[in-house]
């Protein structure tokens, strides 16, 4: 009995000292708990539907951030990964009857391969040239899809995919839990040794090479990882929508993901996720007022770019938390001294 108490006390202390001290951690906790509890309060199909799509696009936006934010390989055609994965799972599910618990991983593998195929020609490019080249890939693929309507269904796409699960609530839990797990993995990647290298490649690739690092390998790795996560999002999307059309490859989707990420705050993983969770439901609910929808959207994004160039979430975070000038640990902004080293925070 005694040691159970010991562990309960230990967990409670950890919770008190590590979670409750920082508003951002409390907010994250509330967010996760709220997401997991929503179906217990309301099973409104429309609300769940919007949240499912939000979760899927969160994975997608975070994968863009991994490649373009962290590694600096700005990708203007990120919908390519999404579309390829969606079509892959659509084709193999409808024609080969591969069940969805296999077709989604296969879609992710298709995303990885796409990452390789796009990454190799893009290795020598940077900046604007890279952006324009990546923009071209989904357009080329859309052309191919229209050219082969017998296989791909042309403009109408493929329909009749299996459902993700038997009920909307299950769908909701699958996507939301996957979203939480995958974004945590991405966040962990950016926090690891590899993450430091990816970050450094964005800053100055030549200097990383002079540090003896094979930057080609790491850039390709970034493309593949990003393709993998975007691929899962694409596969999930295909099974949720139960139809796959050329809209998954649209330029508009590629730009949408950039808008979400820039709004939420790039180079943070949680920023793009938050960006999707704010903007996507907003866009959905504004559908009732179609005339002002685009206007509201444009003004919002413009305002963030002007007043919070780092994005919304890092901006808020800097308002409610302060970084200790000595030990670089964050404390809540109301404190006068650092919670670890007691240095003055001003």
């Amino acid at each position: 009995m005694g040691f159970i108490w010991f562990y309960i006390r230990k967990i409670f202390t950890l919770f008190k000292c590590e979670v409750l001290v920082l508003p951002s951690r409390v907010a994250l906790l509330v967010f996760v708990v709220a997401l997991l509890l929503i179906p217990a309060f309301t099973q409104d199909p429309y609300l769940l539907w919007v949240l499912i799509l939000t979760a899927i696009f969160s994975i997608f936006a975070a994968s863009w951030d991994l490649l373009s934010g962290f590694t600096g390989q700005v990708n203007f055609g990120h919908a390519l990964f999404f579309g390829v994965a969606a079509y892959t799972s659509g084709l193999i599910n409808v024609y080969a009857k591969v069940p969805n618990f296999l077709s989604i991983p296969l879609a992710a593998i298709a995303g990885v391969l796409t990452g390789l195929i796009v990454g190799i020609p893009c290795l020598r490019l940077r900046g604007t040239y890279l952006a324009l080249t990546t923009l071209a890939f989904p357009i080329i693929l859309t052309g191919l899809i229209f050219a082969l309507p017998e296989v791909t269904g042309g403009e109408l796409g493929i329909s009749g995919l299996d459902r993700l699960s038997t009920s909307r609530v299950y769908d909701y839990y699958i996507t939301v839990v996957l979203m939480l797990v995958l974004t945590t993995i991405m966040w962990k990647i950016t926090d690891s040794k590899t993450g430091i290298l990816l970050h450094a490649i964005r800053e100055d690739e030549l200097a990383v090479r002079a540090g003896g690092i094979n930057t080609t390998r790491y850039k390709l790795l970034a493309f593949c990882l990003s393709g993998f996560f975007a691929g899962i999002a694409g596969g999930l999307y295909a099974h949720i929508m139960r139809t796959v059309g050329p809209s998954t490859l649209e330029v508009a989707l590629s730009f949408q993901v950039i808008i979400w990420s820039v709004f939420g705050g790039i180079v943070s993983i949680y920023g793009p996720v938050a960006g999707v969770f704010i903007l996507f439901p907003l866009a959905e609910f504004l559908r009732i007022l179609p005339k002002v929808r685009m206007l509201v959207f444009a003004v919002l994004v413009l305002l963030t770019l002007i007043y919070m160039p780092e994005g919304l979430i890092p901006w808020i975070r800097n308002k409610i938390e302060k970084e200790c000038p000595r030990c670089k640990v964050r404390s809540i902004a109301t404190r006068k001294t650092c919670r670890i080293c007691a240095a003055s925070l001003d």
Binding site: I196, L197, A200, E203, A207, V208, A210, G211, G212, I213
Partner: peptide, 25 residues
């Protein structure tokens, strides 16, 4: 190994991370 005449640090990374990059070769 070389150093650059016009220094090329990774400006937005902490100094320790700058050095960790080359320690990871």
């Amino acid at each position: 190994a070389c150093t650059f005449q016009n220094m090329r640090p990774f400006r937005r990374l902490p100094i320790i991370a700058n050095v960790m990059v080359s320690c990871m070769c």
